[in-house]
Nucleic acid binder design. Structure first.
Lengths: 201, 201
DNA sequence: CTGACGATGTATCGTCCCGATACATCGACC
DNA sequence: GGTCGATGTATCGGGACGATACATCGTCAG
């Protein structure tokens, strides 16, 4: 729940269709940045937590195979397990998707998941998340800049290059976000732009 | 030891001067990318492991203060602890610094630490690490490229943008590495270019 | 003088996540 | 009939993190 990046992403994928863990993992790798693929050591515990919380159900198929006593160890015949999102799960996902506070953009991974499911997000929330993310990254950039300015002389060439490259990446991220924001403002797409917001909690 | 990114970085910093944990943390944040600062929940366990392995010693100062019995709870008077690298620690650091295999560049964080301590690294090892890193990142780029080509139609605008940005970052990293490699080849700096390597362990 | 505050400083807890690994089934191809 | 690779479920040990508690020190206001 606290971090919960994975749970969020899993709910988002299961929203679209029920899936096996294996399939889930592949989709997850694509959605979450492409490089860093998710490990089973994260996935199955996350699914277990979601199941315990009643947000997904498992469609455990026939493990009623006879299995005669001639196979001594036989720790427990594995079967394919299909995970399906529950009504509560959909509710939770809708909640998560409408979060527009710092928790939605301060962590880059969480921001990535939000972005991946932006089509389930209202236009005004999208805009606030993008702007929040830009502010966060801009602050990082300022931190890096001043740190680099302070230590410029004391560092060797390689460390300097590393920092310069990092600063450049952050700079590009800001520009990328700015483009997204502009484009979002020009064409808000589906979702209410800045609606009532009267009876929010 | 397996991962051991932090241990490596700590040894590298202590190589230069003995330090407190607090100071270590600040320096670490600068060396390791600048953005992601290290947490105490990582730092102190790492120091404990290093201490247990005999790679650092602690200069625990006077905790022989009287402390009369009028302070009931008093879990155990904290004192500043200065960490100093041992001869074994220096040895271990020298080993780590001369690793030029996949473990040095497949993990980006580990590569970052290697780069941060490149001035302790022989010129030929530097070059092999940089080239290895470039190969790794190039493979990531190809993976991303083909994945993007495969799924281009099925993805919405935001996911697409995320992947495009990711691909762009990876692409820039390759170019950055290429510049470093060229520069390294033009001016190898200190360190033997392709030396004996006879009596390694 | 005193007390509040922020920087410095050490340390642990619960939890998430990861890499490695084991176990298991299935189709294809030789 | 045998092996290989893709599919598939699951656990283990350990590293890293955020939050938090505890403790010391200088400083500046009242």
């Amino acid at each position: 729940m606290g971090g919960g990046v994975l749970e969020f992403a899993i709910l988002g994928l299961l929203q679209q269709a029920p899936m096996h863990g294996y399939e889930l993992r592949k989709q997850l790798a694509e959605v979450l940045g492409g490089l860093r693929s998710i490990s089973y050591g994260s996935l199955y515990p996350a699914l277990k937590r979601l199941h315990a919380a009643g947000l997904v159900t498992t469609d455990e198929p026939d493990r009623r195979a006879p299995l005669p006593a001639d196979a001594p160890p036989l720790t427990g015949r594995r079967g394919k397990v299909v995970y399906t999102i529950t009504a509560e799960g959909k509710e939770r996902f809708a909640e998560l998707v409408s979060q527009a506070g710092p928790e939605a953009y301060d962590d880059g991974r969480l921001f990535g998941v939000h972005l991946a499911f932006f089509r389930h997000t209202a236009a005004d929330v999208r805009l606030r998340i993008l702007e929040g993310r830009r502010r966060t990254v801009e602050q990082q950039r300022e931190g890096l800049r001043s740190s680099l300015a302070r230590t410029r002389e004391r560092l060797d060439r390689y460390t300097l290059e590393l920092q310069r490259h990092g600063l450049d990446s952050v700079d590009r991220e800001v520009r990328w976000l700015s483009e997204l924001i502009d484009s979002e403002r020009r064409d808000p797409g589906p979702g209410q732009p800045a609606e009532p917001q009267r009876d929010a909690d």
